[in-house]
Design a protein around this nucleic acid. Structure first.
Lengths: 216, 216
DNA sequence: TGAAATACTGTATATATTTACAGTTATACG
DNA sequence: CGTATAACTGTAAATATATACAGTATTTCA
């Protein structure tokens, strides 16, 4: 391991706690904490304890420290990845899913959009651009963005993102024992029948909402 | 004027400049400026010049100052109103529009949601909850949220929010001279014909997108 | 017209804050 | 086993920062 690689070092649990505190402090007070505020929170008797932690976090490229500046701590983009409970991250927009690749593979992500999570009944994890008119009568049109909640479980009647033979499709879900039907909402299309004993079917997620970025 | 009313006092142009600087400073550095940083920016030779301005802004309830805390300045919600170039404000969700009231009247606003403006081809100004199925075949269903761009001008074929006899409706727009048609997208509904010489029609805005907060 | 508010200069000081230096203990690593 | 890193205590000092006090000139407003 050479001395220049800083980013790949993972945080220790204590460091994660410190980072967490900084993030929450900023959320609460709208400005970063001082060394003594960090120390006070964790019960350190020396401000230097906080100082060393900050230096470590800086070395690992999750925070920035402005020298000689009070409260000069900034959370770097890198920090967002490490933070839990990061409400309202931008949702990746998934376009055409390349055969065999995971839906959220980098190559499938076209863009990122911030969308208020409170809009939807279930937290969406990504947006999937819908192709084709097979769900027209459910009001889901070609080009619509389906807000998808990642989960492998679906109940009858729900609109799912399913993967069948390396193809990703959006359909209404129906299951009776080992027989699954993927139902289109357009009489021009035929239902897809699957026998789980003979064919593999993966539920990628649940459709929880629609965003139509343009009206015709 | 008694001494307790603080909020209604408007800001002087200088105070607005100061507030602006603070806001931009926070955007840039992620923490608020000190008195000397404010002074340096405006060329004050005394940190007290900044101090007085901050006190004035505090008295007018646009900023908060934590006593004894470095960089302890916070922008209060009130400040947002005063600030220009406030990109990405939350969009008000307009529910049922009370007869005779402006669409964006306080009484019509149910909630507020942050939505990435980059999603839509035109900047949406508010979200309108669609009632009824008259636009079903355009994929706009009962309960959908229509993202509306406020403008009084519409071109043929666009989906508009129109006000006719104190009623607000969403329809497709068509105009030939003084004859306007508001076309539903559902054979169960009849087009509305308006002669502008006899009846008043106000275009409240253009539908620029749809958000469906739940799938059935 | 006169008091209050605005918009500053200038000086001073308490204290908030960063930051360096010197240690201790425990754990991980090759 | 020795070295590095993590996770602290404890002390000290330079400096960054808030903030009080004393003024001046101008504008606002009742």
């Amino acid at each position: 391991m050479n001395s220049t690689d800083k980013t790949q070092n993972k945080l220790t649990s204590r460091q994660r706690e410190i980072l967490n505190f900084i993030s929450e402090f900023i959320d609460k007070y709208k400005f970063p904490p001082t060394r003594s505020e960090v120390s006070a929170h964790f019960g350190f008797r020396s401000p230097n304890a906080a100082e060393s932690h900050l230096r470590a976090l800086q070395k690992k490229a999750v925070i920035g420290i402005e020298r000689g500046v009070s409260r000069g701590i900034t959370l770097l983009p890198m920090a967002m990845t490490e933070l839990p409970g990061n409400k309202n991250p931008p949702l990746p927009l998934v376009g055409r899913v390349a055969a065999g690749s995971p839906v959220l593979a980098q190559e499938n992500i076209e863009d990122e959009y911030r969308v208020d999570p409170g809009l939807f009944p279930q937290k969406p994890h990504y947006l999937l651009r819908v192709e084709g008119m097979s769900m027209r009568d459910a009001g889901i049109l070609d080009g619509d963005l389906l807000a998808v909640h990642r989960t492998p479980e679906a109940r009858n009647g729900q609109i799912v993102v399913a993967r069948l033979d390396d193809e990703v499709t959006v359909k209404r879900f129906r299951q009776e024992g080992s027989q699954v039907q993927l139902l289109p909402e357009n009489p021009d299309f035929d239902p897809i029948d699957i026998d789980l004993r003979q064919q593999e079917l993966a539920i990628e997620g649940l459709g929880v909402g629609i965003i139509r970025p343009a009206l015709l």
